[in-house]
Design a protein around this nucleic acid. Sequence first.
DNA 1: GTCTATAATTTGATAGAC
DNA 2: GTCTATCAAATTATAGAC
Lengths: 181, 181
Amino acid sequence: MSKKEQLLVIAEDMVRSGGYNSVSFRTLAESAGIKSASVHYHFPTKADLGAALAERYTENFLSSLGTPKALQASGKNPIDVFISLFRHALSVDKKMCLCGMLGAEFDGLPEKVRIATRVFFNKNIEWLTLAFQSVSRRDELEARKAATSLIAQLEGALLISVALEDEAIFETAIKNRSNTQ
Amino acid sequence: MSKKEQLLVIAEDMVRSGGYNSVSFRTLAESAGIKSASVHYHFPTKADLGAALAERYTENFLSSLGTPKALQASGKNPIDVFISLFRHALSVDKKMCLCGMLGAEFDGLPEKVRIATRVFFNKNIEWLTLAFQSVSRRDELEARKAATSLIAQLEGALLISVALEDEAIFETAIKNRSNTQ
DNA sequence: GTCTATAATTTGATAGAC
DNA sequence: GTCTATCAAATTATAGAC
């Protein structure tokens, strides 16, 4: 793993724990075993780092998912697969979704980071819209509404589970939903 | 309004926009027309300020609600009243719920602020549990699950609406829910 | 790519006068 | 309650050597 990628991994954890402003180039550099000036070589400004974090998170998220069609072809429910990625954020990482955190802090973020954060949500709503259409043949508008609702529910379930340090809350919040298919 | 309360009002807005770490005693003091040293008179440390913010927010929230029984007695659905308070945060303030923001940043907060944040959620879950019991006579455990689910859904709906700057998303996310009563 | 050195600013916080 | 003055530490960022 390149040093740049190491920095992204560490910084992601920091943002997901305490938010964008909880990351400093110095503490990030220390955790990576280099000096803060070297971090600036990889990411000229903090906004560049923030945007790179959101972009990398989005790429990783979408590539973990695959396509709704491929999932369905292999006998899996794409909606369940999507939910399980959020469950992973909680049960393994014990942290917020990176873009959920950035979304909450949206108004206080540099433009560059805001844009990259929004891409995460737009692309995932797009993915889920396709998924809802393919599992239940509803029209595009209804599928998009279900997609947006589900993402909101998942981000909220993560947030409350993190704040109350209770993973069971996530399951409760997901079971009680109206859009299983 | 006392200066201390002024500070709380301004700081609340700041946290709700950019998170706990986006508030500095200097910018807060400037907005209130005093010096940062004077802010320390009212709130010795930043953790004291953060805890006071969460406590005040919780008190205001609960007193705006009244009791589920009183609401029902006056012909209102307490669940709808609860939802409308979250709607207000979005449509009027155009901001996250204060404790939703603090909940997301939970791991990065001072102990004092964490505790006060949790009180918000616990008290509101308590309130909603009573509300669900009184409108639909379900048993306490099921009512509590519905309560937790609803809060998660509302925080998530706020988060996504803020991030995508689209108030309609909040309504979509709330309409598609399974726990209307 | 990483370092040292450094600049300019900001931060949370304190002491003591008024 | 608010101020001035001040502090030590931290912050983002740059210049230039290796």
